[in-house]
Amino acid sequence: MMNLTNIKLGAVTLRVNDLETMKAYYERVIGMDVLETSEHRVTLGTKEMALVVLHEVSGVRPNPRTAGLFHMAILLPNRVELGRILRHLIEQRIEVGQGDHLVSEAFYLSDPEGNGIELYADRPREQWEYEANGHVKMSTDPVEYESMLEAAADRPFTGLPNGTTMGHVHFKVRSLEAAKLFYQNRLGFKVTTDSYPGALFLAADGYHHHIGANVWARPSQPMGQEAGLEAWTLLVDTATNRELGGTTSEWSLTDDDGITVNIKSVD
């Protein structure tokens, strides 16, 4: 079993019904720039990297019975930047959930077609704590957001800053055992914590998690062609690409839940 290293996550592709409404949301609410457009596809992100691709398929609807995206997690460079976007969301009267996960502080919302979004900032790695078995300690506690807003008080939000990345992706799956086989044994991610009931977290490079999987919604079907997640992107170096079995610089794998990863060699 390989040990995945030196990776990044790229853009998440969403299959959407109303491209204009979704594009406006990711621009105005989330603060992304439009990077590329075509007749049925819009790529958004920062000037440095693509974060979301919206693929319009007329008439698609979500199916709550299928596996798929729980949320995509956009990682801000620091706590002040997270405070800036939180203030912006409050001003826009956008309702958010929250969670202090010990390793990070996060806010949760959904786009107009129900796709989950996490906006978060990591705590410094030297502050992370670990269980006796080496798993990272994580929790879900209230965020101390007042000091975050205070730190960002004189910094109006002007869009996602450079340095923002796709921090992790979290999926609704039918089986944690099957998810572990795919993400650990096939892709080479390492389990970082399994202490949350009904959930599993995996990562590369000592991170707290690049992949989350849960069975909380008890999906009964694999993903199909419904609205929602179409694919996520794993960026690797050439050596890792070969180790994974890639014979071209861009290729794809699909897990038992129909969740597709586009693997791209970037060096």
Rank of each mutant, 00 (worst) to 15 (best):
R84I: 04
M72R: 05
Y108S: 08
G83L: 12
V96A: 04
I74S: 09
H208G: 13
T165W: 12
V42Q: 10
H55Q: 15
L14S: 00
V191A: 10
H88S: 05
A24L: 11
G116M: 01
P222G: 05
M223D: 00
E250M: 09
D154M: 09
F70H: 13
A24D: 13
R87P: 00
E131W: 14
V53W: 02
Y196W: 09
Y25T: 07
T43M: 15
G245Q: 11
V261D: 03
V143Y: 06
E131L: 14
S58M: 14
N214H: 07
T233K: 04
E56V: 06
G159S: 04
E230K: 06
T66Y: 01
N115F: 01
A73E: 00
V261G: 04
T165A: 13
E36D: 14
R174V: 00
P62S: 11
V191E: 13
F157E: 04
R93P: 00
A106L: 07
I7M: 00
E146C: 02
T46V: 08
T21L: 12
T140N: 07
I85P: 01
L109I: 05
L51G: 06
E81M: 11
T164K: 15
F70M: 04
Q92V: 07
L119F: 10
G212K: 02
D33I: 05
G97P: 01
Y120P: 13
S175T: 07
P161V: 14
Y183A: 05
G83E: 09
S220V: 13
R79Y: 07
M32Y: 03
G245H: 06
K172M: 13
G245I: 06
A67C: 07
T43H: 13
T46I: 09
A199V: 06
V103H: 05
D257A: 14
D18G: 00
L86C: 11
D122T: 01
G258M: 14
G31C: 08
L14E: 00
G246K: 02
